[in-house]
């Protein structure tokens, strides 16, 4: 993190609105990736991003160390998304029924559905890591920072996530080859 970035975070914590808006520009996509990873729904994810930013602005004074500001934003977004996810849990996934109805349709739409349910079966953290990687093309170190993971943990997470997806989609994959 370079000095100008840190200065920007510091200013934002102290209530500089322009600095905060700059941070929104720089980080809202990352937050979206995290939220989407957890929720698998674009509208909800966008709402989560917005709520998280408003919440962050109101409670910005809680951040002691400006360097931790992005990670703190990510934590807020994750918690928020998790809350939304939990509230939704009563409602069953619609695509599951679709999947059972037409399991053998091997075109892209069907694969989409299968992928969706395979993703849904993953732990939240794994999903968030995946979306961060695929949306933002972030390297391992940045993702670890964002999700508050210790050094090297992501390697296992992404490996297991990919393996899990692969196993669930094996029939479809075989047909694609």
């Amino acid at each position: 993190m370079d000095a100008s970035e840190r200065e920007q975070y510091r200013a934002a914590i102290h209530g500089d609105r322009e600095a905060f808006e700059m941070i929104i520009r720089a980080h809202s996509r990352t937050l979206f990736a995290i939220a989407y990873g957890i929720l698998q729904n674009r509208e909800e994810a966008e709402d989560v991003v917005q709520d998280s930013l408003v919440n962050a602005w109101k409670t910005r004074w809680r951040v002691r160390d400006p360097e931790k500001f992005p990670a703190w934003l990510a934590t807020i977004a994750r918690h928020r998304a998790h809350d939304v996810f939990r509230r939704r849990r009563g409602v069953p996934f619609t695509h599951e029924t679709i999947e059972t109805n037409e399991p053998e349709t091997t075109d892209s739409a069907a694969i989409d559905q299968q992928l969706h349910s395979a993703l849904a079966a993953l732990p939240e953290l794994h999903r968030a890591a995946l979306t961060l990687r695929y949306f933002e093309e972030m390297d391992y170190r940045s993702i670890e920072n964002m999700l508050g993971l210790t050094n090297g943990a992501l390697r296992g997470i992404l490996g297991r996530a990919l393996a899990s997806l692969r196993k669930q989609l094996r029939p479809a994959l075989a047909s694609m080859d």
């Binding site: 808006e21 929104i24 520009r25 809202s28 996509r29 979206f32 989407y36 674009r42 966008e46 991003v49 917005q50 930013l53 892209s108 694969i111 989409d112 992928l115 995946l130 979306t131 695929y134 949306f135 990919l162 997806l165 692969r166 989609l169 994959l173 694609m176 080859d177």
Partner: peptide, 24 residues
């Protein structure tokens, strides 16, 4: 192959260019 599928599928879900403006 899995990676390819993921790339293709998730690329559709990426936020649109006006995303930041909307959030702001």
């Amino acid at each position: 192959t899995m990676n390819k599928i993921l790339e293709e599928t998730l690329a559709q879900q990426k936020p649109d260019p006006a995303f930041e403006q909307r959030i702001l």
